[in-house]
Each structure stands twice: as C-alpha cells, then as structure tokens.
Computed example of a mutant assay.
Amino acid sequence: MRAGRILGTSTAAAALVGATLVIGSPAVAETNAAAAGCTAKAIETVIIRDRTSTSGTALAQVNKGESASASCTMYYGTSSYEKCGIVSKRWVKVTRSGVTGYVVGTCVTIAES
C-alpha cells in the first residue's frame, strides 16, 4: 500500500508542475514522453552525467544560479541519492553548451520555456 501512496503522490506532484512522470530507462522515456521545452536553474552546482546515476560519467556542470535547456520530463534512476538535503531517484535531462545528459532533480528548479 505504501508504494501505491508514494507513486500516487509522485503522479500528483508531476501533474501540479506540468511535468511528465517517467518510470524506467531514459530510452523508454524518450519514446513515450512528448517533447516539451523547459529550463533548469541550478540551486547548487550540479554535474551533468551520461546516465541517471551518481556513478555516471561526468560530462559537464551547471553552476549555482546558471540555467540549462531541459526536458520537462522527470526521469527516475534505479538507486537513490541524497543531494541538496533531499533523498530521491529523480533526474532531469539537460543540455548546456552542446552537452546533453542528466542532473540530479533535487538541486534544480524547472520552469517551462
């Protein structure tokens, strides 16, 4: 029952912010999610990684206060991380200076472009 409540809460939160909830691999998300344009602003400096994992290869970074183009889709990795004081599995796909990858979702704010 707890898993149902958590998923229900996540779905409601996604609806409130106008984002698409995606559970599964990024490849599945790209196939199933509608293309939309958003901007991610870093609350703290975040590393752009090649996959939804803190062990993913670091490709670039978005410094605190800077923005990057972002998908309006929330991606979920397979393991939890703790960043910016929050434990989560949520990731955001961003593009900055020609580099596309994933940043931890707890350290960015998302706004529609």
Rank of each mutant, 00 (worst) to 15 (best):
D50I: 07
R49N: 02
V103C: 03
V108G: 09
L16G: 04
S97T: 13
S97A: 15
N63W: 10
I23E: 05
A33N: 02
V103A: 07
A29Q: 00
V103F: 09
C107N: 05
N32R: 06
S71K: 05
S69H: 11
K41T: 15
T54H: 06
G24W: 05
S88Y: 03
S88T: 09
S53A: 15
G24D: 00
C38M: 12
Y81W: 03
T106S: 08
S71P: 01
S25K: 05
G105I: 12
A68F: 08
E44Y: 13
C107Q: 06
C84V: 15
G65N: 08
V46I: 09
S55K: 14
T52V: 03
T57A: 15
T45A: 03
Y75G: 07
A60Y: 04
E66T: 00
A14K: 01
I110F: 11
I48A: 13
L16D: 07
A111Y: 02
A40G: 01
Y102T: 05
S113E: 11
A68D: 03
A111N: 14
K89R: 10
N63L: 14
Y102G: 00
A60R: 01
V17G: 06
Y75D: 10
V108M: 10
R96P: 10
T31M: 09
A19K: 12
A42S: 12
R96H: 14
S71I: 03
G24P: 01
V94Q: 06
V108D: 07
T20K: 09
L21E: 02
A15K: 08
A34Y: 05
R90C: 13
G18Y: 11
A60C: 01
V28M: 15
R51K: 13
I48Q: 09
I86H: 15
K89M: 03
A33D: 01
V103Y: 00
T78R: 13
S53W: 06
V62R: 10
V28P: 10
K83G: 10
T39P: 04
K41Y: 09
T57E: 15
T54A: 06
T11F: 11
G85T: 04
S55G: 02
R90Y: 07
A34H: 10
K41S: 12
Y75H: 07
V92Y: 00
S79D: 07
P26Y: 06
A34S: 11
D50G: 07
P26I: 03
A14M: 08
S69T: 12
I110E: 13
G85A: 04
V104L: 10
K41R: 14
V28T: 14
G24K: 02
T39L: 05
T95V: 07
G37E: 14
V94K: 02
V46G: 11
E66Q: 09
E30D: 12
V104M: 10
A58F: 02
A29P: 06
V62G: 12
A58V: 03
V108L: 09
I23W: 04
A58N: 06
N63E: 14
V94I: 01
E30P: 03
A111T: 14
R49K: 05
